[in-house]
């Protein structure tokens, strides 16, 4: 099967919420001898890019994107080599994510985690209602250069300012970038600047590109 055909089928699976068909597709591709790592690059990545485009154009619902995230996780589980097998691809970097203090809307954050892992990042998920102090301490402990703070509602989003202030007060602005996201930022993009975010993404599939950019900025500012 040509990659283009596989991509088309995989996107159909995501849109139709057909996880079983996606699993069968992956089995066929692996049996045909396509290297697992190549499947991630040639099939999963382009499919996720298309899903992201549809989501950004509001042609995709959260439920369909959720299916996309589950299918991406299935692909990863079967395609990434285990540590025991060796040849584990080093992560692109470490990203610490969580819902900011007073926010309890976990679904979007969990989807971000899935898509980031699918894109090769090591993800530390701190869960809901995370204070600025915990974000920063975990980021430093894990060697992360990116923290991702999520909020669904406006008032909770304003708590991200505490995280911005803490990063600045501790002199970490150059080496620890603040990604912000959640429904409220899509509705009101000016909020990104109001809370001091270094960047945002319209949806979970675009967070990989955002993290690429932020990590690049860190390397420019403080070196690799």
């Amino acid at each position: 099967m040509e990659p283009r055909e596989a991509i088309t089928i995989l996107i159909e699976c995501m849109l139709d919420a057909d996880r079983d068909r996606a699993s069968r597709l992956l089995g066929e591709l692996l049996e045909s001898g396509t290297p697992a790592q190549e499947l991630l690059r040639q099939v999963l990545d382009p499919a996720l890019n298309e899903v992201g485009r549809l989501w950004e154009n509001r042609e995709l619902s959260m439920a369909q994107a959720y299916v996309g995230a589950r299918i991406a996780e299935d692909f990863l589980m079967r395609c990434l080599p285990s540590e025991a097998e060796g040849a584990v691809r080093p992560p692109k970097g470490v990203v610490v994510i969580g819902n900011i203090e007073d926010d309890f809307h976990a679904l979007g954050r969990r989807m971000v985690g899935s898509f980031l892992r699918a894109s090769g990042w090591e993800v530390v998920d701190l869960g809901n209602d995370v204070t600025a102090e915990v974000f920063v301490e975990e980021a430093l402990a894990r060697g992360a250069h990116i923290v991702g703070a999520s909020a669904m509602m406006h008032d909770a989003a304003m708590n991200i300012r505490k995280l911005r202030e803490l990063i600045d007060r501790r002199g970490l602005a150059g080496r620890l970038k603040l990604a912000v996201g959640g429904a409220v930022f899509n509705w009101r993009p000016a909020l990104v600047e109001e809370v001091g975010g270094d960047g945002t993404a319209a949806n979970a599939t675009q967070v990989d590109a955002l993290c690429d950019r932020l990590l690049s900025e860190v390397r420019t500012e403080v070196g690799p």
């Binding site: 919420a17 996880r19 959260m62 439920a63 959720y66 299916v67 809307h105 976990a106 679904l107 969990r110």
Partner: peptide
């Protein structure tokens, strides 16, 4: 049951 579990149930 939370939104994620509910969406998951609706879908699968």
């Amino acid at each position: 049951m939370g939104m994620e579990a509910w969406i998951n149930t609706l879908l699968f």
